[in-house]
Computed example of a mutant assay.
Amino acid sequence: MSQNTVSSHDDSTLAAYGWDDGWQAAYARATADPATAGPDPLPGRVVRVDRGQCDLVTPAGTLRADTEFVVPRDPMRVVCTGDWAVVDADGAPPYVRTLLPRRTAFVRSTSSKRSEGQVLAANVDHALIAISLGVELDLGRIERFISLAWSSGAQPLLVLTKVDLVPDAATVGHLVADAETSAPGVQVLPVSAETGEGVDVLAALLAGGTTVLLGQSGAGKSTLANALLGHRAQAVQAIRDQDGKGRHTTTTRNLLPLPAETGGGVLIDTPGLRGVGLWDAEDGLGQAFAEIEELAADCRFQDCAHRAEPGCAVLAAVEGGVLPERRLESYRKLLRENARLAARTDARLRAEQRRVFKQRQALGRHMMERKRGVRRRG
């Protein structure tokens, strides 16, 4: 095998995990540089990440590799499930040399005060958001997930799970309509992994691509994953009766191949998310609230805040019953959150720049003092 090329046999092996001509070209560019190629590189897709190590599917089989070589201090460049990488398979142990440029990335803000992003999944085609119908439908949570999904570059898909717990078809119809209002441009599919309702349709929609499955604990993600995979790959636990919340059945993000008979592709299952903070989601908010953005184009003032300005088309739509007031309030809330995070992130970057500048100043003073000392002694 040459350094930059995967043989046709190995190509077909990786193809089941999403390898295509675009990734081949990116791999060839990365391995053209001896610094990132190493003596005998291999392409690989990350299927699981542990602390400092990851499992990758490669032409040589599944390898366990160290990840410390890949800029560990940058949270946006930490190796993530779904990444394509250049692997030094001859290392002791093998290690990831570099990541191929990501096509998409699902990112949320961390709960820490450092204002950092956390990549939950990389190179995904579909962001499959699971919302349980076993509890009251939380439209605000749907809007938050959809905003992040659009921001990722992936196509959002909203699945209303546990439809078998809803007493009648009319109620299901109303819930689907409410969800569609909160997710314009997104397909909403009611599904029951227990009865199989909607699973075949969902499998056909996901065929051949990479899908990340997201949602709160208790949303039925593991049961849905097992239904799509065709076998019990993920453990399932009962939810708590008192609040409808589940325990974290899935504890790591795993990339799993979907059955070839249903079209193939891969599924990234993720642990239940208690919080989904926005991260650089301005574009995603614009798509998630597309009808408000369209209405705003007809406001009298370009910088209209949709509060009390004369000639506000958005407020007129609320007053006329065209736009739900709850929808506008949710839009305002998420915009404020995104703006606060952007300001905090900018402040953190400015602080880091000041720290580096001060270090350089101190180093410069130190070097000058050394030169003066040498001159005096001379």
Rank of each mutant, 00 (worst) to 15 (best):
S2H: 13
Q3I: 13
T5Y: 09
V6K: 05
S7E: 09
S8A: 14
Y17R: 08
Y17N: 06
G22H: 12
A25D: 14
Y27E: 02
A35C: 02
T36Q: 09
P41D: 09
R45V: 13
D50F: 09
Q53Y: 10
E68S: 13
D74Q: 13
P75A: 06
V79A: 01
V79N: 01
D83T: 06
V86G: 11
V87L: 12
P93G: 13
A105W: 08
F106G: 15
V107K: 11
T110C: 12
S112G: 13
S112E: 14
L120A: 05
L128W: 07
S132L: 03
E136S: 11
E136D: 15
L137Y: 05
R141I: 01
E143K: 10
R144S: 00
S152T: 07
P156K: 10
K162R: 10
K162P: 00
A169L: 15
A179P: 10
Q187T: 12
V188G: 03
L189K: 00
S192F: 00
G196I: 01
A207Y: 10
L213F: 04
L214P: 03
G220E: 01
K221L: 07
A227D: 00
L228T: 00
R232P: 06
A233P: 10
Q234I: 13
Q237C: 04
I239S: 08
D241K: 10
G244E: 12
R247I: 10
T249F: 01
L256Q: 09
P259C: 04
G265Y: 00
G265S: 06
G265D: 03
R274Y: 04
L278S: 02
A281E: 02
L285S: 07
D298G: 01
R300A: 05
G311E: 11
R327Q: 14
E329Q: 15
K333Q: 10
N338Y: 10
A339E: 15
R344T: 03
E352K: 13
E352H: 14
L363G: 06
R365M: 05
M367T: 06
